[in-house]
Amino acid sequence: MQNWINAYSAMNLRFLFKGLLVTLEISIVSVILSMIFGSILGIVRYTKIPWLSEIVGFIIDIIRNLPLLLIIFFVYFGLPSLGFKPDTIVAAIFAMTVFESMMIAEIIRSGIGAVNRGQLEASRAVGMKYYQAMWHVILPQAYKNMIPALVSQLISLIKDTSLATIIVTPELMQHAQVIYGQNANYIVPMYLALAVLYFIVCYSLSIISRIIDRKMA
């Protein structure tokens, strides 16, 4: 019992909370960047521009089918050899963005594909250019349909930030490890805390997504 009380000391809880903030920071920055890059890549892939779409599609397929952990290693060990030595948080954001952009590109591509083809034809028939039809008619519908898929991608992004502990990014998982590294009796309390914190963040997001989905249906 005493172990549990000590494990959850104010200092430790504050330290965990700091880790949680870094986790959220990495997640939010990565998701914003990934939405931008992912949308561009997804549209390029969907649009079937000769050569470009095939090359983009190939890159998307390769990166999507690799473990994120491997991407993290690549970024952390590979970037310095290109003369850029990022700190661990930047490296984590970089790796998450590379990986998640590809995942989101795939979601966007299939989201656009799911919008009825007649919508594009009707837009083109009144003289809208391709990008105008995309921007005003196709994308708003596609994004609306994709909200559940995008939120579940965000949830897996948040969970995946825990992998960044391998390059000693000071996020939630890493901070928990630091705490139980001092005292093995804290292992179980720390894992319980991790489970609860991640669960609260991720589960609330999935509830929000469900509410949005129901409201819009």
Binding site: I155, K159, S162, L163, Y191, A195, Y198, F199, Y203
Partner: peptide, 9 residues
């Protein structure tokens, strides 16, 4: 529960 906790945990 298990969908919302990281695999690593």
């Amino acid at each position: 529960i298990f969908r919302n906790i990281p695999l690593l945990v």
